[in-house]
Nucleic acid binder design. Sequence first.
DNA 1: AAATTTTCTTGTCATATGGCAAGTTTTATA
DNA 2: TATAAAACTTGCCATATGACAAGAAAATTT
Lengths: 192, 192
Amino acid sequence: MENHFLYQVFGKTTMTKEEIEMVVLKFKQVNFAKNDFLLEEGKSANNYWFIESGFVRSYVIDTEGNDITTNFYSIGDIVIDWPSFFLRNPTRENIQALSDCVCWQLDFNTFQELFHGIKNFREQGRTTLVGSYFALKRHSISIIADTAKDRYTRLLKEKPHIVKHVSLKHIATYLGITDTSLSRIRKELSDE
Amino acid sequence: MENHFLYQVFGKTTMTKEEIEMVVLKFKQVNFAKNDFLLEEGKSANNYWFIESGFVRSYVIDTEGNDITTNFYSIGDIVIDWPSFFLRNPTRENIQALSDCVCWQLDFNTFQELFHGIKNFREQGRTTLVGSYFALKRHSISIIADTAKDRYTRLLKEKPHIVKHVSLKHIATYLGITDTSLSRIRKELSDE
DNA sequence: AAATTTTCTTGTCATATGGCAAGTTTTATA
DNA sequence: TATAAAACTTGCCATATGACAAGAAAATTT
């Protein structure tokens, strides 16, 4: 039990061993093949996942039909559409596996039982959500305040495994630029 | 009691009258004068507020010393630095009154009692946080996908009272552009 | 291994937005 | 009400990034 993958995920929280065990047992392993959708635009999220292995991307299609990456996920990350999962609404986002993935899944009703039943679990869940909020805000401010080059070098530094495994065009839209521009930024950096 | 300002705020939730009353009684009225800080960079948020009247702005100072507006708040809005309040961390944001304000304040410890004690209150709180997350994501995607002009016209349509009461330069940084550009966009729109 | 598709690079030119500075108008202060 | 300060506009030019298209490289499929 203690070497269950999810044990690491919940091990850093204030939860007791008994609580962690209760929680972990509710998760169910689900595997996705490359290009499978974890969630599709128009549907409502009834699950979320922790990634044990693999890469995942979320994106939206904007009004002009452009694909814009909203986030990348890899080992240890939670994959969740917060608004759709909690507001029980159809989503605008697509979440797709970029590689074969091993994930651990929890559905909404089971989540609710745990959330209302275990104080430490809801503290943990709140902390995770607030962490996502914080990351999103940082990214949003960065798009306003920093140059594309700065954004790219920071991504490279903070998430090198993402840059290594994900195609340039997806990274570009995540950074708010075109693939052409990112290619030029890469060239500039290699010329330095 | 039922005509207490906060009754409207909580009236739309699943909370019972008794729960709402319990919650509302914990809030304390606090007034801010124009330019007062509700929260300052480097400090930790120990309170949040609902605005009964007035206008508030949050902003960060970026690495080059530029002031970037992160949000506007007016009547009925919750004013909270989610990460700082819940993670108990010093914040990077400043929150400042743009006019004299009447607010209703709750501190962290009291919040925790209510959150863990009243199921409907925590459902409500979660919904509010997720709503903020959703708004932030929309704004973030808009900065990538839409032109500055589109962003401005949408703000004008969705929050006309903000545009009316807030100075051009603050609106500009919120939209991710300079005051010069926003001035030109306004001119373009008036020429149409 | 060949064929096909996808990804990435690079050139040319277009455009949105920025930087700076000089005015003008509005608002706040003495 | 006079004065100062802040907010807003406008002109000129610079620059980052986009649009499009062609070709090269890499990855995937047959």
